[in-house]
Every structure is written in structure tokens, then in C-alpha cells.
């Protein structure tokens, strides 16, 4: 009797959180699954088509192009964010005023909205008026302006990567700095007494003891890159020839401008599945390396 009452009380305690999760996670997810099984437009009656949207996605070459581009972007940007972020963290970890100031400067772009920063970089990369072309010409690195967006998919991707590295690198850096600060000072001192060089200490002490943070930042970076949208929507608009249209861009395009909510929902579920697999693999690999 007592245990039954206490289980009710327990349920009551978790009820608000449960209601929140049911309303804002479970219900929308179920609705999305339901939607993905329909030919669903906001302006016309919906029609049940079973797994038709998933079959269509499998046969849609643009889905594969977008997925390939999204993975390529993720594969390129993640190591840059990790390595550069970690190097900056190592350089600025010590709490001197100059290094603290540098950390703040590196972190500052993180607080700017992604839309605003994308627009800023769109104009910095402008063919006619952009600072980047002007600077590269003045430095003698190029002889004529580069068409950064809309001409070549790889050039467009690298331009976006530059802008995103500037925008988000501070986030990883701050987490890495916090993790480095958490390492007890005496470990490093003992290694110094034993004659370990700086890079030996980094390799044998700092890296292993910050591994969990490295995993966290990698995870956040990979998920963020797989979900990339704003930067490509603003800077490349998927051009040239949809070669820079990321998976989320494709979902947006189908769901809203094309009004194909059912197909958009199916694509969203596919992407969610891919992200889930990536996350699971990453965690599995991390556990194995710890074992």
C-alpha cells in the first residue's frame, strides 16, 4: 500500500517533466511519422501513401547529392574545429590577462546569430565589394577577384567553412580551456620534474585527461554540421546547381516552398536516423578506446 502510494507520488513529481516531453517531443515526433506516410500539403487535403515518401527519397538523386555534400562538409569542418580549437585552447589556457583577453576575442563571434554572421561573410566574400577579394589582390595572392559563391561547389564550401570556423571555434576553445584547467597542476609539474617536454606533456597528460570534453565537442560539432542550414541558405542558396544544398536545406525546400510536408517529414526522419547512428558510433568508439 505504502509502496503504491509512493509510486503515485513519484509519478506526480515527474508529471510536469513527463508532460513537457510528451507534448514537445513525443507528440511532434509521432505527428512527423504520421505526416511522412502521407502526401500532405497545407493547402490541399492529405492522402495516405504508406512508405511512398521513403521510396521517393531513395530514388531522388538530389537526396543523395545533398547527403554526400553534408557529410563532406562535416568531414572537413570537424577536424578543423577540433584541432584549431584545441591549439587555441592550449595557447590561451594560462590565466594571464593577455591570454584571457584573447580567449574573449575568440569567443565573441559565438554570441552573434548565425544568420547575421552568414550575411556578414556573404558580403565579405562579395565579388565586387568584398574585403576578402580586395585583401587577396592587395597581398598579391590573386590577380583577379574570385567568385566565391555560385560558381564552384568546393570553393563555396570552403568559403562557408571559413565563416563557420570564425563563428563557432570559440565554443570548443572555451570548453577545452575549462577541461585543461580541471587537470590537477601537480601532474604536469611531476612530468616536468621527470624532464617531459611541453608536447610530451600535452600528448601524455593533457589529451588523455581532456578526452571526454574532446568527445563532447566532436559530438556537438558533428551534429551541428549535419544539421547545417542557415549558412548555406544565406551564402550559397544551394548554388551552383544544388551542389551545396545540404540535407536540412532540402527538407526546408520540400516542406515549405514546395508545400510537400509529407516528403519533408520523411526526409527529416531519415536525417534523424543518420544522426542517431553517427552519435551511437561515436560513443561506441569512445567507450572502446577507454576500455
Amino acid at each position: 500500500m505504502h509502496s503504491k502510494t509512493s509510486s503515485y507520488v513519484g509519478l506526480l513529481y515527474v508529471a510536469p517533466a513527463l508532460a513537457f516531453v510528451l507534448t514537445f517531443t513525443v507528440y511532434p515526433l509521432a505527428q512527423m511519422v504520421w505526416m511522412s506516410l502521407h502526401n500532405w500539403s497545407l493547402i490541399a487535403p492529405k492522402k495516405y501513401i504508406g512508405f511512398g515518401n521513403f521510396v521517393k527519397a531513395w530514388n531522388d538523386p538530389q537526396v543523395w547529392t545533398s547527403l554526400e555534400f553534408t557529410l563532406k562538409y562535416t568531414l572537413f569542418i570537424t577536424p578543423i574545429l577540433m584541432i584549431l580549437g584545441y591549439l587555441i585552447a592550449l595557447l590561451t589556457a594560462e590565466n594571464s590577462p593577455m591570454r584571457q583577453f584573447t580567449r574573449s576575442v575568440v569567443f565573441a563571434p559565438v554570441v552573434i546569430g548565425l544568420g547575421a554572421s552568414s550575411l556578414l561573410w556573404y558580403w565579405l566574400f562579395s565579388y565586387d565589394f568584398g574585403l576578402i577579394n580586395r585583401a587577396l589582390i592587395d597581398l598579391g595572392l590573386i590577380t583577379r577577384p574570385v567568385v566565391w559563391f555560385g560558381a564552384d561547389a568546393d570553393i563555396s564550401m570552403w568559403a562557408v567553412i571559413v565563416s563557420i570556423v570564425w563563428k563557432v571555434i570559440g565554443f570548443g576553445t572555451i570548453l577545452f580551456v575549462a577541461a585543461i584547467h580541471a587537470i590537477p597542476g601537480e601532474i604536469g609539474e611531476a612530468a616536468m620534474v621527470d624532464g617531459a617536454s611541453y608536447w610530451q606533456r600535452v600528448r601524455a597528460i593533457t589529451l588523455p585527461l581532456t578526452a571526454k570534453t574532446i568527445l563532447l565537442v566532436t559530438l556537438v560539432s558533428v551534429i551541428g554540421s549535419l544539421l547545417a542550414f542557415d549558412q548555406f541558405y544565406i551564402m550559397t542558396a544551394g548554388q551552383p546547381r544544388n551542389l551545396t544544398a545540404t540535407s536540412v536545406f532540402l527538407i526546408y525546400l520540400n516542406s515549405f516552398p514546395y508545400l510537400k510536408l509529407g516528403y519533408g517529414a520523411a526526409l527529416s526522419l531519415i536525417l534523424a536516423g543518420i544522426i542517431l547512428v553517427c552519435t551511437f558510433l561515436q560513443m561506441l568508439l569512445s567507450r572502446r578506446s577507454h576500455a
Binding site: Q62, P240, R241, N242, A245, L253, Y258
Partner: peptide, 21 residues
């Protein structure tokens, strides 16, 4: 119209870009 012609991702612009470049 949007999907066929006006969309930056549609077949009309793709055809033109391939022809142009």
C-alpha cells in the same frame, strides 16, 4: 510554377546553369 521554374533548385535554373557553364 515555383517548383518547375522559380526555385533556385528547380529544373529550369539547373538547365540554364549547365548550358551556360
Amino acid at each position: 510554377f515555383f517548383e518547375l521554374i522559380n526555385s533556385p533548385q528547380g529544373p529550369w535554373l539547373q538547365m540554364l546553369q549547365r548550358a551556360y557553364y
